[in-house]
């Protein structure tokens, strides 16, 4: 008989971001998707009173600013949302298909908008709000499988739906409740290399795992703040070894779970001043002095209500904090040992 011991450690790498309505920076970022090479697509939720901050910021993992898109018209005035094609109102999730097209869902418009890798708007799924097959009510997380089928967490309908990349309905599962396979306002979604699906079952304070046909496989997490407990998990990610990362929103932390859902470790944040943050402080040098006098500067490290988590093939974990306009990056370390117990 063999024993598998998964040892995982997360090493803090760096922080990306600063609060900014334009250019380098984010405005209430809610999710990050990793593109090809080292590109990151950061979905900025923005606010109603500064809706021009609602956009997708493209940058690199090394924090080089590339571009922004999905802002809609450039002359948008204050206090008015732009609902034109290509614009976003309440964006929630991003997913990237095999050609590098970026899909963004909007839980106010119940709309899926599609952009090419250069950020040009190339189409949308016709808005189809409702609760029938293929209809959406407050879509949240999204993820593509290896066949370019798109799974969408249909939060307001408490279910998951599966579509072709062109928006043709394929399947759905789930209903309101707390039984196995039921959901209460689910949010984040992830897929592993076996194409099993993980759902952040937000108001049930748990993660559920399904096969690609929606058959229930397992669940973990209960309401609370102890190790392994969750308080409104927003995001879930799975790395290529099957390690599961959960953005534990109201507990202000990242939790890491083994393949079987057992608790491995948690992180409460390690943020440092980002490159863009350095630029901002250097442009306002009096703030360096204020920081020297500031009380409790160590609080700057802490996660505050992480709204999403993403992991890439290099084992880098990206934790998004909409409250702090930043992404904290960790590097997974360690190995998976397969063999007999030593």
């Amino acid at each position: 008989m063999t024993t598998q011991i998964s040892h995982v450690n997360l090493q803090y790498s760096h922080t990306i971001g600063r609060g900014e309505q334009f250019g380098p920076g984010f405005t209430y970022p809610i999710f990050v998707a990793r593109g090809e090479d080292d590109l990151m697509y950061v979905l900025c939720r923005g606010t109603e009173y500064r809706p021009e901050g609602t956009r997708i910021t493209v940058c690199t993992v090394a924090e080089d600013f590339v571009s922004i898109f999905a802002r809609g018209v450039t002359q948008q005035g204050p206090h008015e949302y732009n609902m034109a094609d290509g614009a976003l109102v309440w964006p929630t999730g991003l997913a990237i298909d095999s050609q590098g097209n970026i899909y963004a869902c909007d839980e106010w418009l119940n709309r899926i908008s599609i952009y090419n890798k250069d950020g040009e708007f190339v189409g949308k799924w016709q808005e189809n709000p409702g609760s029938g097959d293929g209809q959406l009510d407050r879509p949240a997380g999204m993820v593509f499988d290896q066949q370019d089928n798109l799974y969408i967490v249909d939060g307001g309908n408490h279910r998951v739906q599966k579509f072709t990349k062109d928006g043709k309905f394929l399947a759905q599962w789930g209903s309101l409740g707390d039984g196995d396979g039921q959901f209460n306002m689910p949010w984040g979604i992830a897929i592993d290399k076996q194409e099993d699906i993980y759902i952040a079952d937000w108001r049930n304070d748990r993660i559920q795992k399904f096969d690609s046909d929606g058959n229930f496989l397992m669940k973990f997490g209960t309401t609370g703040s102890g190790e392994g407990q969750l308080n409104r998990p927003t995001g879930v990610a799975v790395d290529k070894e099957g390690i599961i990362y959960v953005a534990d929103w109201m507990n202000d932390r990242l939790q890491v779970f083994d393949r079987d859902g057992s608790f491995l470790l948690l992180k409460t944040g390690d943020a440092t001043v980002s490159k863009w943050g350095m630029d901002k402080l250097n442009a306002n040098p009096e703030m360096w002095e204020e920081r020297k006098r500031a009380h409790g500067l160590e609080r700057e490290k802490d996660f505050w209500a992480p709204s999403g988590v993403t992991v890439d093939d290099q084992g880098r974990v990206f934790v998004v904090e909409s409250t702090r306009n930043r992404v904290q990056v960790y590097q997974k370390q360690g190995a998976t040992f397969l063999g007999i117990r030593l």
Binding site: G17, R18, G19, A271, V273, S274, W276, G277, M278, K280, L281, N284, M287, E290, R291, R293, A294, H295, G296, L297, R299, E300, T323, R324, N325, R326
Partner: peptide
């Protein structure tokens, strides 16, 4: 009250 953390780059923090 305690000295405040400046608003850049990550926003304000409560003072005490």
């Amino acid at each position: 009250v305690t000295s405040a953390i400046p608003r850049y780059p990550y926003g304000r923090y409560e003072t005490r």
